[in-house]
Design a protein around this nucleic acid. Structure first.
Length: 552
RNA sequence: GCCAUGUUGGUGAAGUGGUUUAACACGCUGCCCUCUCAAGGCAGUAUACACGGGUUCGAACCCCGUACAUGGUACCA
């Protein structure tokens, strides 16, 4: 086909496209950003709920753009209407905001490089395709699904590469008259790339994370525009990231194999390709089959973003976890710089895992515990209040009614160099501090007591008589030892171990009895602190409750 | 089938040719501290660099092959 014919064909196919690519280039001028600034983008398709992997990729986008004073934008990749899910877009923006991974620009966040929704950019894509047709790099393909699948079968038998390329791309060299005839018959068509690639030649791509990679050149006549005139991912990616001036395409490594195609598209369009950073998927070892697979929303509760919200995992702790899987040296850095924030760490691509990153639930839990241990009682109270507001309104009410006490309880053993690490998520507070609220305690009290001992109520009554809650912790413990000794208990476990027959038990047993009556459990934070908050009256009430419970 | 990438202890991983008798963190086990638990301290977790060749004075690190895993091979992203 001559150039003249190609121009005629382009007009025939896209009569409504009047703008030129030059006009679009002007509408999307170069960004005015400092040297080294990275422009990243998160491009989800609104096809369902958000996955931890999506969150991870968006987190990386955010972090790299932020530390280089660049821009991180959100682009909705909704070119496939069939897969669209109602409310999918709102869900994405909601999750991003909820998880504090907020773009600086993009869909619903503003910016000068929009529209940030691919379904609104059809004209742009068609303009560039029209140009490609004129240049002889694209053509209409009228093959039917049946034709394509029979080619596929043939290729499978011949054990060759599967796809539409070379001799299999039968519509590649259709004459203008043949095309006109098919068009007149109302035959449906897609626009395919007329790939100039030679699969015998190799191209080398340097990925920011994976390093040097070699591929054969692309020779597939990949679909650029679908039957309905919308672009495929590949084409939209190239056009958008060029016009929006993305500097670093950070995406999942399921895309590495289309790299030769993408590079080729950038080349024939005359664009400068961005840098690519392909991040490893978050994987897990399947407990049934023992094989490694991607996190699955169906099998793994922690795969879905919702899980973190619902179970009350603090956003900051999740960020910490994402940071540790993003850069392998983050964990150690954070350990040595406990007072610093994630923002103070400089992320780099060469510290990013190349292979699959395995999801480590225990590590996440540990990070959460550390997070809570560093928060003051008041902070934990306020955050738990916000969490229960959404997910546990009954407990929320109780928290509000018992604010003063709760903050005091949550503050126990928080001020020392080794703060308590007993909660890993907001939903733990209710269970872990069940003794803190009288009405809850009255209802449940000893139901969860797991021992089989019965403790002496009269002894404890006598003990409380002597108890002075104005003392210091040390004075209290000395008094308790003294009390224990007077009643036939050893003053320390060590002493008891030496001659167990000489005693009824040791101080620990006295404390245990008291602890069970007062908190309903055998384990708790510092007993004296708890008693101080409760006061003598409430302690006595609880001893009475225990008396009834144990039939004494 | 074809193409690509990966494979270090229970887990995540450090490490890119010689101070590696392989760091660190998490987990687990034991001891210590201790009113319990958590935390913390100390110690342990048997022969952890997929396998086979090659290059080199020297390889976890470079090259080739094999196995396995993952991803792609769509008018899905």
């Amino acid at each position: 086909m001559s150039e003249k014919e190609r121009i005629e064909l382009a007009e025939l196919l896209f009569p409504n496209i009047k703008k030129t690519r030059e006009e679009y280039e002007e509408m999307y001028p170069k960004r005015n950003l400092p040297e080294g600034a990275m422009v990243t983008r998160y491009g989800p398709s609104p096809t369902g709920s958000v996955h931890l992997g999506n969150l991870f990729s968006a987190f990386c986008d955010m972090v790299y753009a932020r530390q280089s004073n660049g821009s991180f934008f959100l682009r909705i990749e909704d070119t496939d209407q069939k897969r669209a899910v109602e409310g999918g877009i709102e869900n994405i923006t909601g999750v991003l905001k909820g998880f504090d991974i907020t773009p600086t620009e993009g869909y619903s966040f503003g910016g000068n490089y929009g529209p940030y929704q691919q379904s609104k950019r059809t004209e742009i894509y068609q303009t560039y395709v029209k140009d490609l047709i004129v240049k002889g790099y694209a053509y209409p393909c009228f093959m039917t699904e049946e034709e394509i699948s029979s080619i596929r079968e043939e290729q499978e038998i011949n054990k060759t590469k599967i796809g539409i390329y070379g001799m299999y791309a039968v519509d590649r060299d259709l004459s203008l008259d043949e095309i006109k005839e098919k068009l007149a018959n109302n035959e449906e068509y897609v626009i395919r790339l007329k790939s100039p690639g030679d699969p015998n030649k190799q191209i080398e791509v340097i990925d920011c994370i994976k390093g040097k990679m070699k591929f054969p050149e692309n020779d597939m006549d990949t679909v650029l525009l679908k039957k309905d005139g919308t672009p495929t991912y590949h084409f939209a990616h190239v056009i958008d990231d060029h016009l929006m001036h993305t500097t670093h395409v950070i995406r999942g490594d399921e895309w590495v194999s289309s790299l030769p195609l993408h590079i080729q598209l950038f080349e024939i369009l005359g664009f400068n390709p961005p840098k690519y950073a392909h991040i490893a998927p978050i994987t897990i070892k399947d407990s049934e089959t023992g094989t490694i697979r991607k996190l699955s929303k169906r099998k793994d509760p922690w795969a879905g973003a919702k899980f973190y919200e619902e179970s009350g995992i603090p956003i900051e702790a999740l960020h910490l976890y994402l940071a540790t899987i993003a850069n392998t040296n983050f964990e150690e850095w954070y350990l040595n710089n406990q007072d610093k924030k994630i923002e103070d760490f400089t992320f780099s691509f060469d510290k990013q895992a190349i292979g699959g990153t395995s999801f480590d639930e225990a590590k996440l839990t540990n990070l959460c515990k550390t997070y809570f241990s560093r928060k003051s009682g008041e902070e934990v109270y306020n955050e738990t209040l916000a969490y229960t507001e959404k997910f546990d309104s009954d407990y929320n009410k109780l928290l509000k009614e018992n604010k003063e006490d709760m903050i005091k309880f949550l503050s126990i053993e928080k001020d020392g160099p080794r703060p308590r690490k007993d909660i890993s998520k907001y939903s733990d507070v209710k269970e872990e501090f069940s003794y803190a609220i009288d009405s809850m305690f009255k209802e449940e009290n000893y139901a969860k007591y797991d021992g089989d001992k019965t403790y002496d109520v009269n002894l404890m009554k006598e003990y409380v008589e002597e108890l002075d809650l104005t003392k210091t912790n040390e004075e209290w413990f000395n008094m308790t030892k003294d009390f224990a000794t007077r009643h036939g208990y050893a003053a320390s476990p060590k002493e008891y171990k030496k001659t167990p027959d000489a005693y009824k038990g040791h101080v620990g047993d006295v404390c245990e009895a008291l602890r069970v009556m007062v908190t309903g459990r055998t384990k708790s934070p510092d007993l004296f602190s708890i008693m101080k908050i409760l006061g003598k009256n409430r302690i006595n009430e609880r001893i009475e409750l225990y008396k009834k419970y144990s039939n004494q």
